[in-house]
Design a protein around this nucleic acid. Structure first.
Lengths: 334, 334
DNA sequence: TTGAAAGCGCTAACAG
DNA sequence: CTGTTAGCGCTTTCAA
């Protein structure tokens, strides 16, 4: 039963003594075929181990049954999880995913986009902020496009994003409810995007509770473990030591825990610490990190759903936006 | 400049007043074209923003410039890293990767394999042990195939794997060098595959050092944090408490650290702990984990290289095997 | 230096 | 119920 030459639909037709049309139709059931013929054809298909060439099919149908997911780095757990969600959504309808990492390089992204444009039915694009110019090729190709993490949809593309603002507020409220009043925030050194929205939410929650956020309690630092530790150290030196600190992400929060431990401060006894994202390590550190989980998998699913809808849509329709609220994962650090 | 209809090579030819043949050749440079004609064609291509349909190309060329990577779970950092390595290797030659997760489900794997067979030029397959039967479809299709993590290559497929045996020995030797004598091993409840080979290496290193491994010092447990903690607790209750313990992977090692901390044991002062894999969390726990890093990215690169070679190969050639030694990552836990 | 035309493997009018 | 045939968009002989 060793490898024969690639068998095509004509081989099957010939051996079964029917036309290729008939073979095609027993496969697709798009028109009736007599039971006898069908059986005969099926048998031959079996014998020849025939499998229709998907490429030819795609070419005919002008559909590739493939979706591109383009991310800065597939090694990043967040994107990985998005990929998983996307795949979960589209596999049941026999769609595949091409995944590509761009390293955040605009050139690479452009290249990949161009190469992929004619091989996919839809594109999920993630990462840094996109200019309309970056998007044009895929919009022009009338390919369904969804941006992950962008804030507003536009003509020719949808958006799935986090309710970062709400998440920041949720985190602050949780801490407020637990009796904390002096709540600090360690953020990233940028004043836009998710970090800014998280801080924004934190600020409004505090305001709503009648507390004015002491500006000295919002510090920014590189989003690394070391950065978190340094910022935390500074915060702990404040005359009025914060009772709780929210960190812009889990890695920073882990650094903050380091700094607390170094000073012999008990977490959460002396100071409560929270993060964002719920990375795998969040449950692995001591104390286990209380954090705002980003629905990364759901992001991917939503993207898949949007793309699938757009594919089957006849009329363009309004740009859409799906937003996920963060979910509090209560563990030990706050 | 809004979206026109899909422009094809015929549109370009018409507008430039040449034949499609000529357009094709200015694109491929596979035969001389007069400078004048070339310029004219290029200009039209520009104007129309023409991009050749890759699908049609693939169909003609019988090459898809796509490679499939099939893994149990793309969410697992190890596979993610493999994916990255694979992509790094094949992108420079304009190949793409289709990534698919199987959840370790044989049925799903079979399905995906079948669906992908006619859409890719090569397959990298990872995960549980494969029977020849599982492999047959792709071998029969004469598609380059490499198995990740399998031990021996066979007819029609190559293999890239870890020198697990050596890694086990390396870990044990490191501990031996640091003066430890009572060295335990927490392994997985299986007696084959990577875990078994790691234990094997550990055994031979001990033997070479003139120590017979006390069988009571090799315990098996579910490969979870909790499993690690339980096994560690048992080990710590031994009359002759081990001075060091090697864990079959980092998650288990983190559990072991938990157990040590719970008993007030200092790591590495009272007991040294090592893991395998060097997952991201390894550097995040306290104390930071000393571990044997698996060259996951290099695995992917090697797989890519093998597949690319096989694709351009005319003669089948011998099955190949590439092995990576693990690398000791010295941190604080041992 | 250039074109005409034959397919790659499949599906779907159109015709019996 | 079944078959003939025209493409999908491209590359590549073969011929001029």
């Amino acid at each position: 039963v060793a490898g024969r030459q690639r068998v095509g639909i004509t081989d099957v037709a010939a051996k079964a003594g029917v036309s290729v049309t008939t073979v095609s139709h027993v496969l697709s059931s798009r028109r009736p075929v007599s039971q006898a013929t069908r059986n005969r054809v099926m048998k031959v298909i079996e014998e020849l181990d025939y499998r229709p060439n998907e490429l030819a099919r795609s070419m005919r149908a002008q559909r590739t049954f493939t979706i591109a997911l383009i991310v800065p780095d597939i090694t990043n757990p967040f994107y990985t999880s998005v990929a998983r969600g996307l795949q979960d959504k589209v596999r049941p309808v026999s769609y595949h995913c091409i995944v590509a990492s761009t390293d955040g390089d605009r050139e690479v992204e452009r290249d990949i986009l161009h190469q992929l444009l004619t091989r996919v039915d839809g594109v999920a694009l993630s990462g840094s902020d996109k200019s309309p110019e970056d998007l044009r090729p895929v919009v022009d190709a009338r390919l369904p496009l969804v941006l992950l993490g962008a804030d507003t949809p536009g003509p020719g593309f949808d958006v799935v994003t986090n309710a970062d603002n709400d998440s920041g507020a949720l985190a602050a409220n949780y801490l407020l409810e637990r009796g904390h009043r002096r709540i600090a925030f360690i953020t990233a050194p940028v004043d836009f995007g998710a970090p800014a929205r998280r801080v924004e939410g934190y600020r409004s929650a505090l305001a709503e509770a009648g507390l004015t956020a002491d500006p000295g309690r919002v510090v920014s630092t590189p989003v690394t473990r070391e950065g978190g530790a340094r910022a935390m150290a500074a915060l702990m030196d404040l005359p009025e030591r914060p009772e709780a600190v929210i960190c812009v992400n889990d890695v920073v929060a882990i650094g903050a825990i380091d700094a607390a431990a170094e000073r012999g401060l008990n977490v959460p006894g002396d100071v409560a610490i929270m993060g964002f994202d719920d990375i795998e390590a969040a449950a692995l550190v001591t104390p286990k990190l209380t954090t705002m989980a980003t629905a990364s998998r759901e992001h991917g699913q939503a993207a898949g759903e949007l793309i699938l809808e757009r594919i089957t849509e006849t009329e363009p329709g309004e740009p859409r936006r799906v937003v996920f609220p963060a979910r509090l994962v209560r563990r030990d650090s706050a």
